[in-house]
Amino acid sequence: MTYKLILNGKTLKGETTTEAVDAATAEKIFKQYANDNGVDGEWTYDDATKTFTVTE
């Protein structure tokens, strides 16, 4: 399945997608991606749209 991440960081904003077997796997990938890019904030997930959002 395709999952989407919306980044609302102070210095980085944008979107990315990943292919993952489930939401938990996608979350791990996205949290590593956000960490690698210096984004740390409040996480939400919308199962209907398979979208994670992180807001600093």
Rank of each mutant, 00 (worst) to 15 (best):
D22Q: 04
A34V: 08
E19H: 14
T2M: 12
D22W: 03
W43H: 01
T53M: 10
E42H: 15
D46I: 05
V21Q: 10
Y45S: 01
V39A: 04
Q32D: 07
I29Q: 06
A23Y: 14
A48G: 10
A26K: 00
F30D: 00
T55E: 06
F30Y: 02
T16A: 13
I29P: 01
T17A: 08
K28N: 09
Y45G: 00
T55W: 10
T18H: 06
K10L: 13
G41S: 02
T53E: 05
N37E: 07
A26E: 00
E27H: 15
Y45F: 07
A34S: 05
K13A: 08
Y3K: 00
G9D: 03
M1H: 14
T55S: 07
A26M: 02
K31E: 04
E27D: 05
N35L: 14
T49Y: 05
T11K: 12
K50A: 06
F30P: 00
G9R: 05
F52W: 07
T44P: 00
I6D: 03
I29V: 12
E15D: 06
A20Y: 03
T17L: 12
A23L: 10
V21P: 11
K31D: 02
K28S: 09
V54Y: 03
K31H: 08
D46F: 04
G38H: 10
E15W: 14
V21A: 14
D22V: 03
E42I: 15
F30R: 00
A20S: 06
D40W: 14
I29Y: 10
D47G: 09
I6S: 04
Y3W: 07
T55K: 07
L5I: 03
T25N: 08
N35E: 13
K13W: 09
K31Q: 08
D22R: 03
T51G: 02
I29A: 07
K10N: 12
G38Q: 08
T55Y: 07
T51R: 03
T16Y: 13
I6P: 00
A48F: 12
E56V: 08
N8K: 10
Y45H: 02
A48S: 12
N37K: 15
F30A: 01
T2Q: 11
A48Y: 11
V21I: 13
T44S: 15
N35K: 15
K28E: 08
E42W: 12
V21D: 12
T55M: 07
G38A: 07
T17M: 10
L12I: 14
E56A: 09
Y3S: 00
Q32L: 10
A24Q: 12
D46L: 04
E19W: 13
M1I: 15
D47T: 09
K13N: 09
T25M: 09
E15V: 13
K10V: 12
N8E: 11
V39L: 12
T51N: 02
D40I: 13
A24G: 08
T51L: 04
K28Q: 12
M1W: 14
L5F: 06
D22L: 04
E19I: 11
A26T: 01
A23D: 06
G14N: 10
T11M: 11
F52D: 00
E19Q: 15
N37F: 14
G41F: 03
A24F: 10
T53I: 08
D40H: 15
G41A: 02
V39M: 11
K4I: 11
T55D: 07
E15R: 07
E19M: 15
V21H: 09
A20F: 03
T17I: 08
G9N: 04
A34Y: 03
A34F: 03
T55I: 07
K31S: 04
A26Q: 01
F52Q: 00
A23P: 10
D22H: 04
K13G: 05
T51W: 02
G14P: 04
I6H: 05
N37V: 15
A26R: 00
